[in-house]
Write a protein that binds this DNA or RNA. Structure first.
Length: 279
DNA sequence: CTGTGTTCCTGTTCGC
DNA sequence: TGCGAACAGGAACACA
């Protein structure tokens, strides 16, 4: 689930338990996720206060009082939950959880335990020394944050200028815009009325100036992400909140459109779209 | 440098 | 019901 809106939602949900709280103890249940945990992971976290919890693209960033930053990525199946921390943290403490995919437990001075669960283990955790955050390999090449003023039609067009790859692949490229994933890339292209297979270069003139489609797509990206965040924050779940994703063969929801949703594979991943109203 | 394909891992769903 | 295949929301890496 974790694309930008889900990560933002997680950030807001776990912030009350973590921010301005001290990490009393850390249970580390295995040596690695997708990559090994950094050296002295538990030692460097224990006793630290989390000063702030922010998000960049799909990364969560916990700023520690030591100046280090705990960088976390949810991968494909990563999730956090907050539980009351009945168990006293420390040696011999009974784990607060029994799920075999609970890999990390943060015992906070707020009285809550924040549990990281990730069946597929595509998640990542790293500790970044003070001052080294911008240069971190996971962050340094990221494009603009889609909901910031840095991202607009001009930025999108510039990034896609001359690109031979498809629009869908371009939206998944975190250097073009940071935080979209497979679901919201499909959704944004649908809202913008653009066919996912068209070359990304159509967004810009040869000189790099935005064409009309770039304005539509930049606005659609912001719209789709803002909608998803507000819906999640309201905890307002519905059967399928999406316009095209996972709606194969269902009628297109756009007004006065007679199309039905198709699926195709691009770059080994499913793209959902309406062949009638997306040109 | 650019674009494409593979790979990491486990759980769920689908067709026979 | 059982079983294998296909597929799943990410991103680093190898290669042409």
């Amino acid at each position: 689930m974790p694309e930008l809106p889900e990560v933002e939602s997680v950030r807001r949900r776990i912030s009350p338990a973590m921010v301005r709280a001290r990490i009393k103890a850390v249970d580390l249940r295995r040596p690695d996720l997708r990559r090994p945990f950094p050296r002295h992971f538990v030692k460097r976290l224990t006793g630290e206060t989390i000063v702030a919890l922010t998000r960049r693209a799909k990364y969560l960033l916990a700023s520690l009082s030591s100046g280090e930053t705990l960088l976390m990525h949810l991968g494909m199946s990563g999730w956090f939950r907050v539980v009351r921390d009945r168990a006293t943290a420390g040696v011999g403490a009974r784990p607060a959880t029994i799920d075999p995919h609970d890999h990390v437990v943060f015992h906070m001075s707020s009285g809550k335990a924040v549990v990281f669960n990730d069946p597929r283990r595509f998640g990542v955790m790293d500790l970044v020394p003070a001052g080294a955050l911008q240069e971190h390999p996971s962050l340094s090449r990221l494009g603009p944050e889609p909901l910031s003023d840095d991202f607009d039609a001009a930025a999108l067009a510039q990034a896609c200028r001359g690109k031979k790859t498809s629009l869908k692949a371009a939206l998944l490229d975190q250097r073009v815009v940071a935080g979209l994933g497979n679901i919201y890339a499909s959704e944004a292209l649908h809202v913008a009325g653009l066919s996912p297979g068209r070359p990304a270069s159509i967004l810009a003139t040869p000189a790099g100036a935005p064409r009309e489609a770039a304005y539509r797509l930049a606005a659609a990206i912001k719209h789709v992400l803002e909608n998803a965040i507000s819906r999640r924050s309201e905890d307002n779940y519905r059967a399928s909140p999406f316009l095209v994703y996972d709606r194969l063969d269902e009628p297109c929801l756009k007004k006065r459109c007679s199309g039905s949703i198709r699926r195709r594979t691009q770059g080994g991943r499913s793209t959902f779209y309406c062949p009638v109203c997306q040109q």
